[in-house]
């Protein structure tokens, strides 16, 4: 199962006016892996997520996903964000974007939207099929909440949750879409050491169930502990890739982080 690629990004480029935020970036994730994408502030990591999830339209490049049970690559280029999610990429946001005036459970139920069907007439008539579907949404969502440890807060409004719990809820919401690949944008940002440790455990647990994960993170300890492979970028370019051990000793990476001139 391992080593079968599920995400292939090639030559991805994104310009904002005159700024090239992504410069011919290549990246791949294999099934079952945890891959980290790191880089200094403003390197273009979030822009990378936005481009592959259809929130921005990249200037050039291709994004393919390959479902594990088939060999056909699906091109995500030009798809709308909701279509990308349907095809199997689900993400969290760097600055938390929950549905604040919905309950925690409802937030997760939204994640089930693209896997269910009931519409106007189903909603009004509440026929057997709709009731069954609604029940399955509930059960699935509750189950996901239990997994991330938020089941006790199911009926709270999302904006009443403490910060760390809100980050977990974002993960739960993304998981509810049953993604092929889970994209996490700085899941540990703003967390205290205890919360970060819990997060570490949670991500490992999700991964153990076979979930492939691509994660952006600044907390190096967490990155080193979780990742199978690491991609490093700076100024929109990939400057290194490899296992945690390789990255730790890579001189280009150290320079990028220390802010030295590479050719000084």
């Amino acid at each position: 199962m391992m080593n079968k690629p599920i995400l292939n990004v090639s030559n991805l480029t994104m310009d904002f006016g005159g700024i090239r935020a992504l410069d011919s970036l290549d990246l791949d994730v294999n099934s079952g892996e945890i891959v980290a994408l790191i880089g200094p502030n403003g390197a273009g990591k979030t822009t990378f997520f936005n481009c592959i999830t259809g929130i921005y339209t990249p200037t050039a490049g291709d994004v393919f996903v390959t479902p594990p049970d088939s060999n056909k690559q699906i091109n995500l280029k030009g798809l709308k964000p909701n279509q990308v999610t349907e095809k199997g990429l689900a993400r969290t946001f760097q600055n938390i974007r929950l549905f604040e005036k919905m309950t925690v459970l409802e937030n997760v139920m939204i994640g089930r939207h693209c896997r269910t069907k009931a519409f106007i007439f189903g909603a009004i008539l509440r026929n057997a099929a709709t009731r069954k579907e609604e029940r399955s949404i509930l059960e699935f969502s509750y189950h996901v909440l239990e997994k991330v440890g938020l089941a006790d807060f199911a009926n709270e409004f999302a904006d009443n949750l403490p910060y760390g719990a809100q980050r977990r809820l974002e993960i739960a919401r993304a998981l509810a879409t049953e993604p092929l690949l889970l994209l996490l944008d700085e899941p540990a940002a703003g967390m205290n050491p205890q919360e970060t440790m819990d997060l570490d455990v949670l991500i490992k647990e999700i991964s153990r169930e076979g979930q492939s994960i691509l994660l952006i993170e600044h907390d190096m300890k967490l990155v080193m502990s979780l990742s199978d492979r690491i991609f490093v970028m700076d100024y929109g370019k990939k400057i290194a890739q490899g296992t945690p051990a390789e990255i730790r000793n890579n001189s280009a990476v150290i320079k990028a982080y220390l802010g030295e001139e590479v050719n000084a």
Partner: peptide, 21 residues
């Protein structure tokens, strides 16, 4: 309903809503 929840999610945050499919 599923539809009603989608409406409210849309009201709360359009981008997150789309990103959730």
């Amino acid at each position: 309903s599923r539809l009603g929840r989608a409406w409210i999610a849309l009201r709360e945050d359009e981008i997150a809503c789309q990103a959730m499919g």
